[in-house]
Design a protein around this nucleic acid. Structure first.
Lengths: 387, 387
DNA sequence: GTGAAAGCGCTAACAA
DNA sequence: TTGTTAGCGCTTTCAC
């Protein structure tokens, strides 16, 4: 071995064989020593470690060989890479950036990287269109940041691929069967918001919703409604009579221009199977004094429609948004919209911590569920019930 | 082989050996046939491919073995993964999200994923703290979205690692020696902005700057100044006498609260080695009628300080920002701040396209440089020179 | 406690 | 045109 590498300038990467030759021991001994196998004497282990350091042995360079050898025994190798399923198109850059921020804050100091990919649709779950990196044994775990339906299909395929198999997976915001979940306490938030408004004398509420095709699953929207209903029931009020659902599906809350639009169609909501202007719904239910938005945009939209009809907030109606992402500023620049703040960064951090734990655990862990508290911000849009 | 796998439900992954047995040919023949080697007859190749499809052979599952075998000949294997060096802390979420958006739009349809990691400081270039995924031969290329200094140090180490070596690298926004570069035409933008103001009768300009420790390199700021100087020289004006530089380094343009702050220190700028209020600088140079910000925040800050001193924009001073990220709205909700828009998404797209090309090229390509045009938005903050 | 040897699945040189 | 064989660097079983 005349071309023994000089540390840092290796033409050829240092191998176990080099260390073995350097120490005058066998290759197998080096392998065991580097992995702290108790069969190796303290003395030889020390010599091997010293030689490895001196020659500049880097185990990560030989992941391929290690993986190949271990595959014989069905074992795996950590790559320090976590897959992230991101929403294609970044519909809500802030939302996604906050989650990613939290995730990276945990992954990077732990020596992990995030492997970001998209899912475009259900079809992408086909074996052929799955990003090859997910099947190649590159990732040690997976975090989904999108609606679960397409990811469920994807995992269904990945689970039976030897390169992914039983690696830990987690879903953010939404629950996903078979995966860990880190989400906000939407039920608790709905409950707390309602309690507060009940304390202010409100008794009849309008809940704005977006009826999605998948809305049968327990998703955030439904948890919030469930929380509101619990608060009502606790107060001795029949939820079915005191919480009216109005669907805003024709209003695109991702389009800022929709909030202040004067288009008549965008003023319409569905109540049951009838469609009529939001203001008419309120006139038909004069006992309603408070409105829950599904997010800030829907709350602001309702506020705007009320203003257009000559109503005042909070004198005539109290209004609450959700997520605390879109403010409504008064003359002094202060936000007036009450809202509930989903702790996006914390959700990201918790999920990354969880996945790293599960990926590095000696024995496989069962999926876990983390529910993080939601902070309330009551501002000028909320006041005592009128009358 | 009684446990031959059933497609899609494999206990054990299908190997070349399985295919060879199935076809009654040798293992080497299968290997060559699957890689379309001309030595194999059309007939056997067809049989091998059919068997591979029937048994559900997935080459990506055996990357480790392939990589190990190829390592003998110094060859590499594509993983369809591009590393992205992101700014830690997401100081400017919008900026980063736009770049990422463009990058992903190209990578994902091409079957690639992005491996995101941070660099915290120069120290991170130490071999031990480099994310192991970058050394393990996982990535096929690298795109840097941060200031180049720490990345240069990182690449200096990575280049001599067998797992990275000569893989293609690209830097966005900033030039980086030895790497491809995709950036905006800042020089052209500085030139075009100045030409426009010259046409409006302006002859003396104030350029706001941020004097960074690395500002000797040709970075965006310096390109913009160079463009402005070219326009002046072209108009027969001495750039040294017609473009005054005022440094705003004590103003933190990432802090929105700084823009409207009344703190006296935040009103100060450096001109040469003197520090004094921005407004005093303008009073001392009454010929100046137009101000170039280095970004929108610095332009808005100047605007605010002028307002505080009783000046009007654009009647007394014309003001131009850069990046077009932070608007200043008038009563009707229209943005008043003139700015130049760096095509962030396009930069991301171009860089991803470039890296994929270079990573998949049969022969190594030399680093390339792409300079994308910058669009101008002249709005209410710009008008004819006074007097 | 340590050495020798088999093999993980693949590629490529060499034979036939 | 195809078969045979020697590794790639590692882990692990089995002698000693």
């Amino acid at each position: 071995m005349t071309d023994l590498p000089i540390a840092g300038l290796s033409v050829r990467a240092v191998t176990l064989k080099d260390i073995a030759a350097h120490c005058g021991v066998s290759l197998g001994t080096v392998s065991l020593a580097l992995r702290d196998d108790p069969r190796i004497s303290t003395d030889t282990r020390a010599r091997v470690l010293a030689a490895a350091a001196e020659l500049g042995y880097d185990p990560t360079l030989h992941q391929a060989a290690r993986r190949l050898a271990l595959s014989k025994h069905g074992r795996d190798v950590l790559n320090h890479v976590i897959a992230l399923i991101a929403p294609s198109g970044f519909h809500r850059p802030g939302y996604f950036a906050e989650l990613l921020h939290g995730i990276m804050d945990v992954l990077v100091p732990a020596g992990f990287c995030a492997l970001i990919t998209y899912i475009y649709s259900h079809e992408d779950a086909q074996e052929t269109t799955i990003p090859s990196a997910l099947r190649a044994g590159i990732v040690d775990g997976l975090i989904s940041m999108v609606r679960p339906e397409p990811v469920i299909a994807l995992l269904d395929t990945l689970r039976r691929q030897p390169g992914f198999a039983r690696r830990p997976t987690a879903s953010l915001i939404w629950e996903m069967p078979g995966s860990s979940c880190v989400r906000a306490d939407d039920e608790g938030a709905g409950y707390a918001l309602t309690r507060r408004l009940l304390a202010l004398g409100h008794r009849h509420f309008l809940q704005l919703t977006f009826l999605l095709p998948y809305s049968k699953t327990m998703e955030p929207q439904n948890y919030r409604i469930a929380g509101a209903r619990r608060a009502l029931a606790e107060a001795g009020l029949d939820p079915d009579r005191h919480l009216l659902l109005a669907d805003m599906s024709n209003f695109n809350w991702l389009n800022p221009a929709h909030i202040d639009s004067d288009q008549p169609e965008l003023a319409q909501v569905w109540v049951g199977d009838r469609v009529l202007p939001l203001v008419d719904v309120l006139r038909a239910h004069p006992a309603i004094t408070a409105i829950f938005g599904l997010n800030d945009a829907s709350a602001l939209r309702a506020w705007r429609l009320l203003e257009g009809a000559g109503y005042r907030v909070p004198a005539d109606y109290s209004i609450v948004g959700f997520d605390d992402t879109t403010p409504r500023l008064d003359a002094a620049g202060a936000n007036q919209l009450s809202s509930a703040r989903v702790p996006l960064q914390e959700i990201g951090r918790a999920a990354a911590t969880l996945i790293i734990e599960q990926a590095t655990a000696a024995v496989p862990r069962a999926p876990a569920e983390l529910v993080l508290p939601v902070a309330m911000a009551f501002r000028g849009s909320v006041g005592p019930a009128r009358g």
